[in-house]
């Protein structure tokens, strides 16, 4: 069953990408959705504001070791982990 976090993250990404949440699939990349590096930091800002969390993302971290942004589904999972209080390093594994 899809979580509320899932729906809210999708809604944020969809809004930034000027799409409908229903158009998004878990395997889509932000690039496919037309989001560039600045679109990404806006998504992260919106996530932080929505859930009152701090997202450990650094645009220079090429391995995305702290916060996986490789797909819509990955972002949802990363936010769910943060919400559950798991440490960023645990999210890597």
């Amino acid at each position: 069953m899809r979580s509320q976090v899932h729906d809210q993250v999708l809604s944020i990404i969809a809004r930034e990408a000027h799409r409908e949440p229903a158009d998004l699939r878990a395997d889509m990349t932000l690039e496919e959705l037309g989001l560039d590096s600045l679109g990404l930091v806006e998504v992260i800002f919106a996530i932080e504001e929505q859930f009152d969390i701090s997202v450990p993302f650094n645009a220079n971290d090429m391995a995305q070791a702290q916060f996986d942004i490789s797909s819509v589904g990955a972002i949802v999972r990363a936010v769910e982990r943060l919400m559950s209080g798991e440490s960023p390093s645990a999210a890597v594994a």
């Binding site: 930091v41 992260i44 800002f45 993302f57 650094n58 645009a59 220079n60 971290d61």
Partner: peptide, 20 residues
Amino acid sequence: EGLRVMSPDGCRPFSADRNG
């Protein structure tokens, strides 16, 4: 900070481990 391009731990230009 909001731009997510800053390093939290040091400036390492041209190094493989650079992070901002």
